[in-house]
């Protein structure tokens, strides 16, 4: 877990509609020393938080209770905040202009989460 030290203290937003998955993500991130800035499970909430919170990184579920979360992705891109998609779909479910964003397929292991975050950060 030493390579995850780079994430100590970074501010993260989790956007995920499955509460349990969201909780697990929080637990994972806290283990590697991230600072949890907040969570959102609905699109409108996610948009507000993505616009307003001070962030270094975001984890973004592609499907938020049936709604695509791409508007959030656009806000994060505009703010130049690195993020990863967390999805059950795989990269093919993404619009062409977002295919370069790292994708963390569900279910995932912690190592995969760290890899995806590293890819997004650099």
């Amino acid at each position: 877990m030493n390579d995850a030290q780079i994430f100590v203290g970074i501010r993260v937003l989790i956007i995920e509609d499955e509460a349990l998955v969201s909780m697990m993500l929080e637990e994972f991130l806290e283990q590697i020393g991230c600072r949890m800035m907040g969570t959102a499970s609905r699109l409108d909430d996610a948009i507000i938080k993505a616009r307003s919170l001070p962030l270094d990184m975001a984890l973004l579920d592609v499907n938020l209770a049936g709604e695509a979360s791409f508007p959030v992705a656009e806000i994060l891109t505009a703010r130049d905040i690195p993020f990863i998609f967390v999805t059950g779909y795989g990269p093919l479910g993404l619009p062409a202009d977002m295919r370069h964003i790292p994708v963390l397929p569900k279910p995932f292991q912690m190592a995969q989460l760290v890899d995806a975050m590293r890819m997004a950060a650099y």
């Binding site: 499955e18 349990l20 998955v21 909780m23 697990m24 999805t87 059950g88 779909y89 397929p105 569900k106 279910p107 995932f108």
Partner: peptide, 9 residues
């Protein structure tokens, strides 16, 4: 996949 992730959680 979501269900598996939930089970995992």
């Amino acid at each position: 996949k979501n269900t598996l992730a939930t089970v995992q959680a």
